[in-house]
Design a protein around this nucleic acid. Structure first.
Lengths: 179, 179
DNA sequence: TGTGCTATATATAATGT
DNA sequence: TACATTATATATAGCAC
């Protein structure tokens, strides 16, 4: 168990899939952690024999957003220089893009919840009321939500306190160092 | 050493960078291994304060190839070869408008799902799930809550260091090239 | 199939240079 | 600041159901 692994293509199909499932999970966890810890933006797209559609992370709207950035700077930038006389069109594009970004952002907020809902809605619901794990889960979720709510309240208070307190808060939260 | 890590945004800049450097390396290694072992195609793009340009993996051309594939009806790919500049822009507006409508629709749908989820989470609809879903749920909910916490932290930082945060956000979208 | 288990391999946080 | 070390934490391969 936990054997050293030969880093080459796994020929056996079922082993390959097992490895894929295990490592995909680990990999997404790593992405999630890196994103959380370092406050960065990551997107990933996976094409494989195991999905009919590409697996995207963290969410299709987010990936789309990053891909648009990626493309826009190489293609749209060029167009911009070639079409000065079309600036009114550019402006229309810009406005549409901004509005789009706003909706994409809102979508991102809800994406995780959406995934939760899908898990629940996909016929995985059973009707046994007395499962201990569910109760544990409920408690844990409840505690975490309390903590989140507490932090929101704290933030609210900070927002409405005096300037001097805000300055104290400034010192408590160090600015991001640029390197 | 190897201490258990608090999975939230690292406020201290140098720690954050150290963690980013270490984990980025590990993450890319995982991507490499997953690709090799399972014969899949992965691409990743990272926007961060640590690079002026996005970090792309496995390589800019490869990422571009996969992104073009992802956008099966790539507006740019078609436009570049088939359209004059004016129709190119008109096409962009059209696409942006369509996309906007799509996101607005998705938003409405997600809001509805969100409400359903809230009902479920309050124990009013779902009584139970099997252990597998519980574990998945636990992970996803946990991540969701971490994300919420991170957003609060981000908001907090922004409130007290709005200047440096704004600069950071600006740098998050820069043209692509080799790292 | 997919899940749990557990021995190992691997990743990595803190520390020293 | 970057790199080497090392104690721990985490990921995971192979197996049993």
């Amino acid at each position: 168990m936990g054997n050293k692994v030969n880093l080459e293509y796994i020929v056996d199909g079922s082993s390959r899939k097992a490895t894929y499932v295990r490592r995909k999970k680990g990999m997404l966890k790593k992405l999630e952690e890196l994103t959380t810890l370092c406050g960065i933006d990551v997107c990933a797209v996976v094409y494989s024999e195991f999905h009919h559609q590409p697996l995207v992370w963290p969410s299709p709207p987010e990936v789309q957003r990053m891909i648009n950035n990626f493309n826009n700077y190489s293609e749209f930038g060029k167009s911009k220089n070639m079409m000065n006389q079309e600036s009114f069109l550019e402006e229309k594009i810009l406005k549409a893009t901004e509005k789009l970004a706003k909706f994409e952002k809102e979508n991102r907020e809800m994406e995780m919840s959406m995934r939760m809902f899908e898990l629940m809605a996909n016929g995985n619901i059973i009707d046994n009321m007395n499962n201990v794990e569910l109760n544990d889960m409920a408690w844990i979720i409840d505690e975490k939500l309390k903590h989140v709510n507490w932090r929101i309240t704290e933030l609210d208070n900070k927002a409405s306190t005096s300037q001097s307190q805000a300055q104290m808060a400034d010192e408590a939260v160090k600015p991001i160092d640029k390197e």
